[in-house]
């Protein structure tokens, strides 16, 4: 593995880990379910992609990289669906969002 690839891998891994940590921290810190959805989104998109790209640099041009690409595509395609499903389930039963002005909500939820 060349030095450049090693440095790039290290940078991507570090950045990804930082974003994963920020996302998890947000999941703990934010006040309600709907805002926490966004924090989980950080982990699922940028944190995950950056870490996997870093690992691709470690793997080089091999089948390992192909598998990493598959994992990344799979999660990027399925995570919005899962997020929407959770959000939709919560909204359907009328879980009230924190801090949203009342004129935004449907009649039944006010």
């Amino acid at each position: 593995m060349s030095l450049l690839a090693a440095i790039l891998a290290g940078m991507f891994l570090a950045a990804g880990a930082i974003f994963v940590l920020i996302g998890s921290f947000g999941l703990w810190r934010l006040p309600d379910f709907y805002t926490r959805l966004h924090a989980a989104g950080i982990t699922d998109t940028l944190g995950l992609s950056l870490m996997l790209v870093g690992m691709m640099f470690l793997g080089g041009w091999t089948l390992v990289t192909v598998k990493l690409v598959f994992i990344m595509l799979l999660i990027l395609l399925t995570s919005p669906t899962a997020t929407h499903a959770v959000a939709n389930a919560a909204y359907t039963v009328g879980l009230r969002p924190f801090g949203v002005p009342p004129e935004d909500l449907a009649e039944k939820d006010r």
């Binding site: 996302g23 998890s24 999941l27 379910f33 926490r36 959805l37 989980a40 982990t43 699922d44 899962a82 959770v86 389930a89 919560a90 879980l95």
Partner: peptide, 11 residues
Amino acid sequence: SLYDRVLAVNS
């Protein structure tokens, strides 16, 4: 809420 837990387990 239950939804927080589902979200957390998914994450």
